[in-house]
């Protein structure tokens, strides 16, 4: 597990910053809920009259006056975007950084198979995403308890599970891309996360491109549907997991046979 531990150590600063930042903003959102609660009826009316924009973010199906309605929108913005950026950046950098930083010669001339290097780096990605989400989940529950609201555990757990799966999918796809890249991996990761986010918004607005919901992982993170139906759309989750698995398979296929040039 040398590579795994080494990667955890190398990535610990970025991991702490991302976890701290996401946790901080999520907790702040929860802590300001009691103050905003009284104004939410007026806000809900405003949001409900914003046409396509309302549909784009699912605000036509959520009640901002309730904790879960408020949390779903805020969680989507904070955890949905920042968590996806973290997963995409981490996944996209893990393999590419060895060639970019010219450390691939050092690592790959030691008696460790490329398959093992890939596996341990993948384990790092899964561990970081899992720990980040566990910390954020516990922080969210603690924050809700701290403001004296009852915890809608099932809905919160479903929301966090959906965003966890989204991060796994994006992280895995970016990990696969990372095997093909030497430079520019950060841009590719951020670009992919932003693109899939925009695809979901466009699919929400325009029925003619609704098929995009079967491509973007944000579709199975639609808070209004998760809260409304009390479950995740398993077809979309399944497609997402298949895409993630393809990303991982691509990483093994490419990196095991890749020429490491100077």
């Amino acid at each position: 597990m040398t590579v795994f531990l080494h990667e955890l150590r190398q990535g610990r600063k970025a991991f702490c910053i991302w976890t701290g930042a996401i946790g901080f903003f999520l907790a702040v959102c929860v802590f300001i809920f009691p103050e905003m609660k009284g104004e939410m009826d007026a806000l809900s009316d405003t949001f409900a009259s914003m046409g396509s924009f309302t549909a784009a973010f699912g605000m036509d199906r959520l009640n901002f006056g309730t904790l879960i309605g408020y949390y779903t929108i805020e969680c989507g913005n904070v955890l949905g975007l920042a968590g996806a950026f973290f997963a995409a950046l981490t996944g996209a950098g893990l393999l590419a950084k060895e060639e970019r930083g010219r450390t691939a010669d050092f690592l790959l001339t030691h008696p460790i198979s490329r398959r093992r290097v890939i596996s341990e780096k993948l384990l790092t990605l899964l561990t970081e995403i899992s720990v980040l989400n566990l910390v954020i989940f516990l922080l969210a529950l603690g924050s809700i308890a701290a403001i004296g609201e009852s915890i809608p555990f099932k809905d919160i757990a479903h929301l966090h599970l959906a965003y966890y799966l989204l991060q796994l999918e994006l992280g895995a796809i970016c990990f696969g891309l990372s095997a093909f890249l030497r430079r520019g991996s950060a841009g590719v990761g951020l670009g992919l996360a932003g693109l899939t986010y925009m695809m979901n918004i466009i699919a929400n607005i325009a029925p003619s491109v609704e098929f995009l919901k079967y491509i973007t992982p944000y579709a199975f993170c639609d808070g209004a549907s998760i809260v409304g139906e009390g479950k995740l759309d398993m077809i979309k989750v399944g497609i997402g997991l298949v895409l993630g698995a393809l990303g991982i398979a691509a990483a093994y296929w490419k990196y095991e046979n890749k020429d490491i040039n100077q």
Binding site: T2, V3, H6, Q10, G101, D105, P111, I112
Partner: peptide
């Protein structure tokens, strides 16, 4: 590679690691 050691013409090391960390990492690998 268990029996071979390689010295490249230009060496690159992981950012933030001290010399002794790199030496220990190489030994652990």
């Amino acid at each position: 590679l268990k029996e071979v050691a390689y010295l490249p013409s230009e060496s690159a090391f992981y950012p933030g690691l001290r010399g002794r960390d790199m030496i220990a990492l190489s030994a652990r690998l």
